[in-house]
Design a protein around this nucleic acid. Structure first.
Lengths: 332, 332
DNA sequence: GAGTTCCATGCAACCGGTTGCATGTCAAGT
DNA sequence: ACTTGACATGCAACCGGTTGCATGGAACTC
C-alpha cells in the first residue's frame, strides 16, 4: 500500500523561513524584489520541505494556467500525430502544457470539448475544425483561438495550401502523358478537400486535360479500395487521392484487379504520411503538418503575450514528392 | 478586433437571484439540498447571465480537477494514437479531460512532464515509460499512477502480452516449413522488445528450429531496411520484426534485392498498425493498444473513486493476424 | 400550545497562492 | 540633524468557488 504525501504550502515555508507568505511567493515569482539573502533562505527552506507551488492556486489568482488546448478531429489519422508532436514541442519551449482533444469528426463533441477546455486553458488551437463558422466565431469571442486549415477572416489561421502540391501533381502526370485523371475525393465538409478538388480542376483545365471526381465519403483505406471500380469506369489512367490512406486503398483495389502500378496506372496520394514507410513508395503531396502545428502554437502564444488579436493568415505551400507509383502512360 | 467577455461569477448570480453564494454553488453541485423552486430560480438567473462554473476555483477548493495525464514516448509512432484515442474516449465517459505528454523517448523529458502534470491532474497513465523503476515508484508515491507495458509490482499495470502472438507467429512459420527465422529487434530498453525476443526463443526451441536476432536499434523503416543484409546473412527464410514499421523496411529492403515476398521469403510484423492499410497486406501480431488505453484509464478512475491502490496486473493477450506476407517455404 | 424534528438557507472559513499598498529601515543629500 | 527616497518586507484583500456549522421557520408530535 502506497501512501501519498500531501502538498507543502506557502504558509508552512513562510513559517519555517520566518517570513511572510507574500515573501515566499515573491521568492518564486519575482526574486529581484527581495534581498538575495532572504531569497536564499526561503529557497533553502522550500527545498528542505519539498515545496512545489500549487499550479491551481496560482492559476486562480493570476488567471494564467500555462496550458493551451489542441483539438483535432481524429488522432488516429496519421496526418495529425506529427502536428500534435510539433505543437507540443513548441508549447514546451515556453513551458506550456498541451490539452489534447479528439472529436471523432463530430461537431457536437468538438463543441463540448471546447467548452470543457475553456477555463483551464489560455488559448485553443482548432485543427481541421468541423464546427460551423458561427460556432467558431462564438468561441473565439471567449478565448484566444488559432485555426489550422480553416479560413475565417479575423481569426488567426494557418493554412496548408495543398493546392500548390496538387497542381504539381497534375503537371507531373500530364508530363508523363496522362490525359484523363481521376480525383478520389474526401469528406465534403473538409476545407482541404474543396481546396484540392478545385486545384485539380484549375490545373487540369489550364493544361487541357480532363479531371473526373470520384466520391469516397471518408478518408480511409476501404473508401479508396471501393472507389477503384468507379475510377476505372471514368477511363482515367491516373488518380490523385484525397489522402495517403485512400491512395493505399486504391493501390490495393488495383492490385486485386491485376492492374500494375505504375506500369498500367499511376497513383498519387496527399499528405505524405505513408509514402516513406510503405512499399512500393507512394508518390504524394507533402503535408507540412508539423510546421502547421508549430506555427499555430507560436501564433497563439504570441497572441497571449501581446494581448492582441492580429488577423494573421499564414499559408504553407506544399510540393509533390516523387516516388515510385507514377510512370509514363503506356497504352494508348 | 475581437473583445472577450470576462466570466460571470457565483456572486453575481447570487445577487441576481437574491440568494447567498453558497446556494448558487449548491444549485450546481447538490441541487437536492435546495428546494426545487430555489434551484430553478438560480438556474434561470445563471442561464440568463451566461454563468459557467470556474473550473480552476472549483479545483482549488475541492482538490479535484477532473483531468488525467497520459504520457507516451512518441505520438508519431502509430502504435500510440489508437491507444490515446481509446483512453480519451474512456475518460470522456466520466467527464475527465486528458492531458497529453510526449517524451520524445527521453527519460529527462518524461520526468519533467510528470512534474508539470502533477498538480493539475488527479492521476497519470504512463505508457511504455522510459523512466527507471525508482523514478516511477517515486512518482507513484505522489499521485495515482497506472502503467502500460511496464511490469512493476505494487503499481497497477496493463500489459500487452505480445509473447502469445509472437509464439503463434513462430508456430505459423514453422508449419509453413521455415526452419531458420530471424528476429529483427527493437530498442534494447524496451520491455516489449525483451518480451518478444524471449517469446521467439522459447517458441523456437520448443519446436526445434533456430532463431537469429538481428539488431535494429530504433523501431523504424530505415532500421528494417538496413537490417536486410544481416538478415539474409543468417540464412533465415523468414523474419519477425519488432514492429510493423521495421517490417515495412524489411519488405522494402528485400524488394531492392529482388527477393519476392512471400514466395521467397516470409515477413511478419508486430503491433498490426500498418498491416491493414498497406499493400501487400502485412501479416502481423495484433496489438490491442486500444484496449490497453481504455483499461488503463478505467483502472485509474477506479483508483480515484475508491481511493485505494490495488495491485492489479491486467494482461492482454495478442494473436497472429494472417495476411499476405507469409507463405510456404519453397526452395531447399 | 409547547416541544421536537427537519429542512432550506445563510454565514464565514477555507483551498493556496498573488499583489497593491502601507510600513519600517537605512543611507544619502543638504 | 532633518528630510527624502529607495528598498525590503509585511498586511490584507482578492481570485471563485466549496462546505461545516448555525439559524430560523414550518411541520409534526403528544
Amino acid at each position: 500500500m502506497i501512501k501519498r504525501t500531501k502538498g507543502v504550502t506557502i504558509s508552512q515555508v513562510a513559517e519555517a523561513a520566518g517570513v511572510a507568505r507574500s515573501s515566499v511567493s515573491r521568492a518564486f515569482t519575482r526574486p529581484d524584489m527581495l534581498s538575495p539573502e532572504t531569497v536564499e533562505r526561503i529557497m533553502k527552506a522550500a527545498e528542505a520541505m519539498g515545496y512545489v507551488p500549487n499550479h491551481t492556486a496560482r492559476a486562480l489568482s493570476t488567471g494564467r494556467h500555462g496550458n493551451i488546448g489542441l483539438i483535432v478531429p481524429d488522432i488516429a489519422n496519421p496526418f495529425f500525430p506529427p502536428m500534435i508532436q510539433a505543437a507540443q514541442l513548441e508549447a514546451d519551449r515556453s513551458d506550456f502544457c498541451i490539452f489534447l482533444g479528439n472529436t471523432e469528426e463530430n461537431p457536437k463533441q468538438e463543441d463540448k470539448l471546447v467548452g470543457r477546455f475553456a477555463g483551464q486553458v489560455e488559448g485553443l488551437v482548432l485543427a481541421s475544425s468541423r464546427l460551423s463558422d458561427e460556432r467558431i466565431r462564438a468561441h473565439a469571442g471567449k478565448l484566444p483561438l488559432v485555426l489550422i486549415n480553416r479560413d475565417l477572416d479575423g481569426i488567426p489561421r494557418v493554412l496548408i495550401d495543398s493546392g500548390s502540391g496538387v497542381r504539381e501533381a497534375v503537371e507531373h502526370l500530364v508530363k508523363l502523358g496522362h490525359r484523363k485523371i481521376a480525383y478520389v475525393s474526401g469528406p465534403s465538409t473538409s476545407w482541404s478537400n474543396k481546396q484540392r478538388r478545385s486545384a485539380m480542376r484549375a490545373a487540369a483545365s489550364g493544361l487541357g486535360v480532363a479531371v473526373e471526381t470520384v466520391p469516397a465519403v471518408l478518408p480511409s483505406y476501404n473508401s479508396g479500395r471501393n472507389a477503384v471500380g468507379a475510377i476505372l469506369a471514368t477511363g482515367a489512367t491516373a488518380a490523385v487521392a484525397f489522402d495517403d490512406l485512400t491512395a493505399q486503398g486504391v493501390l490495393a483495389g488495383l492490385a486485386e484487379k491485376s492492374i500494375s502500378v505504375p506500369l498500367d496506372f499511376s497513383v498519387i496520394g496527399c499528405d505524405d504520411v505513408l509514402g516513406a514507410v510503405t512499399y512500393p513508395a507512394l508518390t504524394s503531396v507533402s503535408n507540412r503538418s508539423m510546421e502547421a502545428g508549430r506555427v499555430a502554437v507560436f501564433l497563439l502564444l504570441d497572441m497571449l503575450q501581446s494581448r492582441a488579436v492580429r488577423d494573421v493568415r499564414y499559408v504553407l505551400e506544399t510540393h509533390l514528392v516523387m516516388r515510385e507509383t507514377t510512370a509514363l502512360q503506356s497504352k494508348n
